[in-house]
Amino acid sequence: MRLDGKVAVITGGTRGIGRAMAEEFTNAGARVIVCDIEVLHYQNDNVEGYELNVTDSKACKVLADYVKGKYGKVDILVNNAGITRDALTGKMSDEQWNLVIDVNLKGAFNLTRFIGPIMQVDGKGSIINISSVVGEYGNIGQANYSASKAGIIGMTKTWAKEFTMKGAQVRVNAISPGYTMTDILKTVPQELLEKFAKQTMLGRLAEPTEIAKVALFLASDDSSYITGHNLSVNGGMRL
């Protein structure tokens, strides 16, 4: 039980990679608070649903205080909530740009600004930020998404420095998944999915559980000497 007795907060945890992480974490012994704008629609005795808009900084502060008050600590934070609003740069609206930046980048900042200091006072913790292969290499029609995910990597390195300033063992790392078979990709035409798969050395797309197992490693004490790192999990897509 690699996370036995630990308390984890996961944003965007009702579906896809977030749900897979919640399942992996609970199987490893953790108590998980899933924060999402959607209502939790699956049953797990060790998962507590909490409706949250990550762009609302006041609501994020309330969430941090709630978890600390109820459980006495926060061991793990996973900033996973994210959206896409794709368009070529010349055709991208202010609304498309602002919404993606607010959810993907500001949302991660909002949770960490309140939960990171809790971990720092407690002297330990693991923060995991979900970036993307698009944040590393860019993608046509996703200037907003790539900017938000590249920003996640920058914040990861900054937080790895900030939250250890007083000697706390707070580790901050990022995961950059490649194309993963979530609900979003299920709407993509099959010929495009096959094209994406051929771009990887392994010849296939990822399953959510494969990303979740990497998060489990970073959440656990098995990665006790890893911080400030961005771990690419893309099947060799960019070798």
Rank of each mutant, 00 (worst) to 15 (best):
Y42G: 07
V54K: 02
A20N: 06
A20K: 03
V67M: 00
V62D: 13
V100C: 01
N44S: 12
D65N: 15
R85F: 08
D56S: 10
V34R: 04
A59S: 15
A59F: 04
A20T: 03
G49H: 05
Q96Y: 01
I37W: 07
D45F: 00
N44F: 09
K61C: 13
K68W: 09
T84Q: 12
F25H: 08
E24Q: 11
N79D: 09
E51S: 12
I101V: 11
D86V: 00
I83Q: 10
G69L: 07
F25Y: 11
M92G: 04
A87N: 15
D45A: 02
V74C: 11
C60H: 11
L52I: 12
A87D: 14
I33S: 02
A22H: 04
T55S: 14
L99I: 05
V47K: 04
A30M: 02
Y50D: 09
Y42I: 07
G72T: 03
L52K: 08
T26H: 05
N98P: 10
V74D: 08
D45R: 01
T84I: 13
M21F: 03
T26W: 10
E23L: 13
Y50E: 09
D102C: 10
G49I: 08
N46Y: 15
N79E: 13
A22F: 05
C35H: 07
D102R: 06
L40Y: 02
V39H: 09
Q43V: 15
V32I: 07
I37E: 10
V62M: 14
S93N: 07
R85S: 10
V67G: 02
I76F: 05
K73P: 15
Y42C: 14
I83S: 11
N46V: 10
C60I: 12
T84G: 11
L88V: 13
V74W: 08
G72P: 02
D75I: 01
K58Q: 12
V47N: 08
L63E: 13
E48T: 09
I101L: 11
D94Q: 11
Q43E: 14
A59T: 05
C60F: 10
D94T: 08
V39S: 09
K73H: 10
T55R: 11
K91D: 14
V34Q: 10
K70C: 14
V100R: 04
A22I: 03
M92N: 03
W97P: 08
L52T: 12
D86N: 01
V67F: 00
N27W: 10
F25T: 05
D102H: 06
L77G: 00
V67C: 03
Y42T: 03
